[in-house]
Design a protein around this nucleic acid. Structure first.
Lengths: 218, 218
DNA sequence: CTCTTACGCTACGGGCCGTAGCGTAACTCT
DNA sequence: AGAGTTACGCTACGGCCCGTAGCGTAAGAG
């Protein structure tokens, strides 16, 4: 992260980076992804447009960095059970996606990253991979509680554990994103409870796919 | 759909619509969402730019219509069991998302729809809601097979069934989209099997969250 | 006090947008 | 047939934003 090979010359002003990223988030809130222009961001940040282009290659990279820090707010406090932990993280993630800047930016950069491998790596490093820690933590905790069986030993077991974590991550994050952004319906306590029940017990499980909850809508 | 109040004047050329939508898909493949320009689409279609603007309000609406037909290709043949049906639709949906035009367009219009309620309605009507039929069909089939309990009677039971269908839809579609577009990793037979097992049996189910499959990667 | 880098400012060619204005084509109704 | 109405093509335009070049100044390192 820190550029070590930069000893001579005038040092960069870290405040400029902070101002640009903050201005980007503010512009995302007011204008949304498509109407956001880099000239406008530079003006908001009180910075020359050229300065902005010296640090970021374009809109995509800038917005990824501007939004990435927001996702680091996610935490996973120990709520006592796997069920409560999942429900908590679902609601927390949903609240994050309700914010206008993340809502409009996340899917846009994902869309762009389908045609730009460099951007794809940036998104994965800055946003996606960093949140897998929550799954790993939650799984480990549940295993210590005895709610989930421990990983099989050896490299093969570790690989299976990694696949399982990836699968759970895609399932949870995907469902919340789809419900909230694609279907466009609220992720409230009722839905979180229904989803958690489905994830833990399965379609053919105790609840039989016809959830009894959902009264807490709105 | 058909405009009934249009009797007088020169009728619209349906071929023009087809040409424009086809040109839009072709441009999406070659240029992607962000570099797609309406002037370029008009030129590809052999049509005046003004004609294009007389039929669609802008890029968003045009692309939604151009891509919507692609999603109607999804089918749900009876594969004999709920497990096989889910696995089949997962792989089918994943193949759809591998196509360059859908890959780049879907998330882009979803991103735009977060700031445009009209577009949101269009996306839901043209793409999202139409695919829920697959969930309803699969559920009904599984109930007839006895793999899932029947819906509770009465309006309350119908509401619960609707919520369950929505939940399953968001979970399946969300996981596939997230795996394929956000995580950027392939949805192959191994992953489809793992995911289906998780969906049917749950995290705490027989498989315990550490899937044994996944050998069929690639 | 020189070298190097960061930053601000101005200016520019270029692309695409979305629309206006006009002429022509196709079809309906009287 | 003629009048009315709508569809389509073409040209042209102001406007916004892009990304960069060119220059002058500021702030550190040696």
């Amino acid at each position: 992260m820190a550029p070590p090979a930069r000893r001579t010359g005038r040092p960069r002003n870290a405040e400029v980076d902070r101002a640009i990223l903050a201005a980007t988030r503010s512009a995302l809130v007011e204008l949304g992804w498509s109407k956001l222009s880099l000239g406008d961001v530079a003006a908001r940040a009180g910075v020359a447009k050229t300065t902005l282009y010296r640090r970021w290659a374009g809109k995509n990279e800038l917005v990824v960095d501007a939004v990435a820090v927001t996702f680091d707010e996610l935490e996973l406090p120990d709520r006592g059970s796997l069920r409560a932990d999942v429900e908590g993280v679902v609601l927390q993630f949903a609240r994050l996606l309700e914010r206008p800047e993340t809502k409009t930016a996340l899917m846009a950069v994902v869309s762009e990253s389908t045609r730009d491998t460099g951007l794809r790596d940036r998104v994965r490093a800055a946003i996606v991979d960093r949140q897998k820690r929550l799954v790993l933590l939650g799984r480990e905790r549940a295993q210590r509680r005895g709610e989930l069986p421990p990983d099989a030993p050896g490299t093969e077991g570790a690989a299976a554990a990694g696949r399982a974590a990836d699968l759970i991550f895609d399932t949870i994050a995907g469902a919340v994103v789809h419900r909230s952004l694609v279907s466009g319906e609220p992720v409230d306590a009722g839905w979180a409870g229904d989803f958690t029940a489905l994830l833990l017990d399965g379609l053919t499980g105790a609840r039989g796919g016809a959830p009894e909850r959902g009264g807490a809508t709105e």
